[in-house]
Structures are given as C-alpha cells and as structure tokens.
Simulated scan of single mutants.
Amino acid sequence: MISCFTLMTLTACTAAEQELPVEVRIANATPAVSVTARGETTPVGTPNADAADDPAIWRNAADPAQSLIVGTDKKAGLYVYGLDGKSRDFLDAGRVNNVDLKDGVAINGAQGVLVAASDRNDVANAKVALFRLDTATAKLTAIGKIDGGRGEAYGICLGRDESGLSAYIVLKDGTINQLAIDASGATPTARIVRTMKLGTQAEGCAVDDRTHILYVAEEDVGLWRFNARASGATTPTKIAAADGKNLVMDAEGVAIAPIGEKDGYVLVSSQGDNAYVLYRLRDDAYVGRFRVVDGAVGGTEETDGIELMLGDFGPAFPGGLFIAQDGHNAAAAQNFKLVAWDDIVQALGLAQP
C-alpha cells in the first residue's frame, strides 16, 4: 500500500521512495477507460488502517448467484461474503495477507474447497494457513499450517497439474517457494519442491492451470511469468515493466481471464495510478487499462489484491466477476468492490470468447 501521499494533496513523496503524487502519475500514464462497480462488500472490521487486502472467489455452479468471496483483513483474519456483499463468516486468523482457493481438493478424506492464506504472524518464518470452506454454510474451518520457508510471507496463489496441488508463496524479498501440498490426511503436509527469485519486493501472483504458467508482480519493476511446473525452469520472463505509462508502480494484485485453450488476459493492479492493466496471454501484448470510478457504489483507489473468474454469477454478473480491494472507502474501513466482467469487456472493446 502506498503511504507517502494522499489524494487531496500534491505533496511529493520522499526521495527514498521515488514516487510522484498520484495526480501527476495519472497525468503521465496511458489513458484508461472507466467502469463502475455493481456491488461492494461490507467494510472489514479493522478501521483507520490499511487492512483489507486480497480476495478469492468460489463459484457455485448449481446456483451462481449463491457464489462466495473470501477476503483478507490482514490485521485480523478472513471474511466470507455473499455476492450481495454481506459478511457470512469471519475467522480470527491473525495477520493473513493474501488468499487463494481451489475446489475439488481432497481434505481430511473428503473432497472440498481448500483455502490458503499467506500467514505473516511470524515475519521471520513464512507459513501457509489452510482452511476448509463449507460452501453450504459459508463457514471457514482452520485445518493447519505448513512451512513456507525463511522470510516474511506476502503473496500466495494455488496451481494444479497432473502431479497434484501446489502453493506458490511469495516472500516479501521476492523469493517464491513452490510447495507441494497434501491435505488428504488428518494434518496437511507440504514440502518445498523448488525456489524462484525476483530481485526486489513482490506480492501478487496467479497461476494459469491450462498452460502451467505462474504470473508474479514485482512491485517497483513489473510483471513476470515463470514455468509453474515443479520440474520447470526457474528463470523468469518479463511481460511488462512498471514504466509509469501502461503500468505504474506499485504493481500489486494479479488475476487471469482464461479464454479458450490458451488465450485470454492477465490483469495486474497498477496501484500507483489507481488503474488495472490487461496483457494478452498468447503473446504478452499490452491490451488496455481501466479504472473503477464512482457510480452506484464508490470506485477503487490504491488497490492491493484483485481476483477474476469468468462464467455465470447470476443476473448482476452474467459473464464473470472481477473483485478489487479498495484502499480508500470514503469514511468507512476498507472493503472490496465487485465489477461485472461484461462491463470491462464493453469498455475496452474486447473480443467476446
């Protein structure tokens, strides 16, 4: 979260942080189209703080309007929300930063929804906190923690291939540890199968299970991709630089819009100018930018985590659901804004799948 300026001033940041006021950054950035949110969650419970951070989505295929959102209050724990934005559950899990989930995972001998959160309660020793999401009751149950390596836990994303389920935990210094997870027994277990490295602070990540590519945002540098397989090369490929034009540092949350067998878009939060950037998956080409502005509910600013899932989510979100953390939620505590993917597609003139 950027802390060295406010939206009401033109005061420059410290030289050490090397950031310009947000108004200047917006003026220098590539133009962005505007969309409005169709919904929002209730604010997190921690007021007057940078608290809400990252969302994850579970889609109810049988009744899409009854899908669920899991979101972090990184000072306190995990929330479960309905698509109406109302809180359905809160679990005191302490300082959990980012969150992701996978359906159809063997958990304690039964198939279910596994939720994984980067646990930074011990800043010297990263953990991944694991939970079961009961989709009938919208309740979370803690099932254990696994070691994520030495360092402060920051980002987290899950990926799955023929070898099983992996968690990719992004440490604050840019180290990325891939953990092979087994949650089928009474206590979850994991082992670090390989380590990747970016040069500076990184956080947001997402895995494309179709192509087995891991996308990671290095905050002041740009967006990268890695081979996501445990046997894959650990050398990253840069997709886009945080050049102050298309992508304005900090580069934060990452999400994927999969279309067809290999195509679609990767989205990244351009936190420095309150925008979101799309790159095409098949060739890493820049596609466009958008902002979430005030409408029926407020817009978004200084977004950390984002998530996107395509498909039917009921009448309000028929083509897919995009969620963004809002760092300035008027006089209330921070929350998450819900945007229809259809509105983004229309605003940017994207080709329909």
Rank of each mutant, 00 (worst) to 15 (best):
P258S: 07
R194S: 12
M1D: 07
D161W: 05
L91R: 06
C157V: 06
F5V: 02
A347K: 12
A15L: 13
L83W: 00
Q201I: 06
D343L: 02
N60R: 04
K262A: 13
P353I: 15
R150E: 15
T30G: 03
P43F: 01
N246P: 03
T187E: 15
A51Q: 10
T14I: 11
P258V: 13
L198V: 13
N28M: 14
D54M: 02
Y265P: 00
G45A: 14
A16N: 13
N108S: 13
N60E: 06
L130S: 01
Y168P: 03
Q66C: 00
G199T: 15
N98K: 14
T303I: 08
L308V: 10
D343S: 15
D119L: 14
Q178M: 13
V268Q: 09
A116L: 12
G298H: 01
A331S: 14
A32C: 08
N98Y: 11
Y276N: 03
I57Q: 00
G71Y: 00
T72W: 04
T195F: 06
T135D: 03
A129D: 09
S166L: 08
A138I: 05
G159S: 11
T300H: 07
V123W: 03
D283P: 04
G314W: 00
V123A: 07
K145L: 09
E301T: 14
D243C: 03
F336S: 02
N98W: 14
A257H: 10
K337G: 06
D50P: 02
I146T: 11
D92V: 12
